[in-house]
Write a protein that binds this DNA or RNA. Structure first.
Lengths: 207, 207
DNA sequence: GATGTTTTATAGCGTCCGCTTCAATACAAC
DNA sequence: GTTGTATTGAAGCGGACGCTATAAAACATC
């Protein structure tokens, strides 16, 4: 591709991708033109196509970037620093906070509704990542039942599916019904399915 | 407008609106052109503009039609024919069934994500209807607590907010992660917040 | 049948779309 | 400094966009 014997890029790929992602996130796939993206990135169209391929390819890169920065890294952070029940609580609470801050919702949810039905490749990515989120919740519920912070009455599969659904629902409300009390009430009630802990979570269970 | 002294319409407005609604529902606002809508309705562009105004106005009419046919009428039906707890259960179960049948999701949710952020009028409609759905659930929870079918431990406001969030989440999953087991698990877990009934619901409580 | 009004089909307006071409440019290698 | 390659800005491709202007067509009224 670039074989170090030529004119170097005048921009940082990461910064540019971030700017493009923000535009897709705010305006959606169809409503964002390649000219818009170029403006946001500070690039001409030729540079956009040269560096990132066509519009669809650029979108997949933005989606990947979004998911790494806003989902996987968050999962990894809460799962590695908090006991399981608190990991779930923190994850959902953060979504409420972010939703009230920006009202952008979630690029994954936006992509699921707007793009996935007409693009099987993106549909596959969307489904994979939702499965990833679901299994994060399921791991937490299982671990929480083991350490006593989550009631053994809670079914890990069902609870994980409810949390996944709740996350997506919150993101829709963020754009269409952005009332803090509603989001907080939904999260409070969703978390209630975890029941009362048998004993305090043991911090040494996880590092 | 039409003062009965002229050439009559060659089409049925309701049928045409229904066809347009289906297109918006399937493809989204931005990705559906007025030519597409005309084709789906069997009309030329001139007729579309003459009968329904511009694209945005047509969309609002489609959204209204969708909400009347797919939300309000459903609320009215389950609320008038079922006791409160079963009304909630039926409403959510129907959404799962519809989601597995068509995978179109919900035009209200689609509009909330794609259109509402850039159109305050539509944002108002979206928020109103979500509030309507929320209060339907709240009414049911309150009535169910009264007739004993729903545990008094369930907070009506929180539960209604969770159900609203769940509905929107289910619609996202319908498009992005359409697995029956996931939707059913989420609904099962959401319904669990209603607790065990103190006594069987009394069918004579409602007509 | 003549008149008046609305709907219809056709054509076209200006604009923006995704994407490409192309020459000028900037750098590494030698 | 020359050469070779990748990047850049400018211009433009064909086509689709939302919307409208126009005139023929279809009916109720008289």
């Amino acid at each position: 591709m670039d074989q170090d014997l030529a004119r170097p890029r005048e921009f940082d790929e990461g910064v540019a991708l971030e700017a493009a992602m923000q535009r897709f996130w705010a305006d959606g796939y169809a409503s964002t033109s390649v000219r818009d993206l170029g403006d946001a990135m500070g690039l001409g169209q030729a540079s956009v196509y040269n560096a990132f391929g066509d519009k669809r390819t650029l979108f997949t890169q933005c989606l990947d970037r979004y998911l790494d920065a806003n989902m996987r890294s968050r999962i990894a952070r809460v799962e590695s620093t908090l006991p399981p029940r608190q990991a779930i609580e923190a994850f959902l609470s953060e979504i409420v906070e972010r939703s009230m801050e920006s009202r952008l919702g979630c690029l994954l949810a936006n992509a699921a509704l707007e793009v996935a039905p007409h693009d099987t490749d993106i549909a596959d990515v969307v489904a994979e990542r939702m499965a990833e989120l679901e299994s994060f919740f399921r791991r937490c519920v299982i671990a929480g039942r083991k350490d006593g912070s989550i009631s053994p009455d809670a079914d890990p599969a069902d609870a994980a599916q409810l949390f996944l659904t709740t996350v997506m629902g919150l993101r829709v409300l963020a754009r269409g019904y952005p009332k803090r009390a509603v989001l907080e009430g939904a999260v409070r009630q969703a978390l209630s399915v975890l029941g009362k802990p048998r004993r305090k979570p043991n911090p040494s269970t996880r590092t």
